[in-house]
């Protein structure tokens, strides 16, 4: 299963959903299911338990250059949350992963692709570095699915 997370109206925050959408067009639906989420952690927890192998793609802010790609395989590495992502209303990706783990609902293989964004303004377009990163991530996930040999650890593209 491919899960793209983000907000299409907030510039680079759309990255995850655009990757998922592109993969949905490229890969046959009997091989892979694709969904887009707005960031509601509970919906993500619910989705994650529906498949043994899940790729999650999301935009991130970690201080790297825009367009930087991180790949995290949760079998080998924990997702580091730089900030406690509890707000007055929702939860983020790290909270969803934590929650799914506690509830025993994490898929056997869960691979996260995080794309560093630079512009999250309302109504902004996806920046060029992030657009290029989206294309790269689409290619890499496609390759992983085709070969079905998940790589280990975190890597920079």
């Amino acid at each position: 299963m491919i899960i793209g997370i983000g907000n299409l109206d907030r510039g680079d925050d759309a990255a995850g959903r655009l990757v998922a959408r592109a993969l949905g067009h490229k890969l046959p639906s009997h091989i892979i299911s694709v969904c887009e989420l707005s960031g509601d952690a509970l919906a993500l927890v619910e989705k994650m338990k529906q498949a043994p192998t899940v790729f999650i793609i999301d935009a991130c802010v970690s201080g790297e250059k825009a367009g930087d790609i991180k790949r995290i395989d949760l079998r080998y590495q924990a997702l580091l949350s730089q900030q406690r992502d509890v707000s007055s209303h929702g939860f983020g990706l790290s909270a969803a992963i934590d929650l799914a783990g506690i509830l025993g609902q994490l898929p056997e293989i869960c691979i996260i692709y995080a794309i560093e964004g630079e512009n999250y303004a309302l109504g902004a377009a996806v920046s060029l570095p992030v657009q290029q990163a989206i294309d790269k991530v689409v290619g890499r996930i496609e390759e992983e699915i085709v070969n079905f040999i998940p790589m280990k650890g975190t890597e920079h593209a």
């Binding site: 925050d13 406690r84 929702g90």
Partner: peptide, 12 residues
Amino acid sequence: VDYLARVEGEGG
């Protein structure tokens, strides 16, 4: 205290 969730607004 600072909280961060998804990047969809801000308040204090």
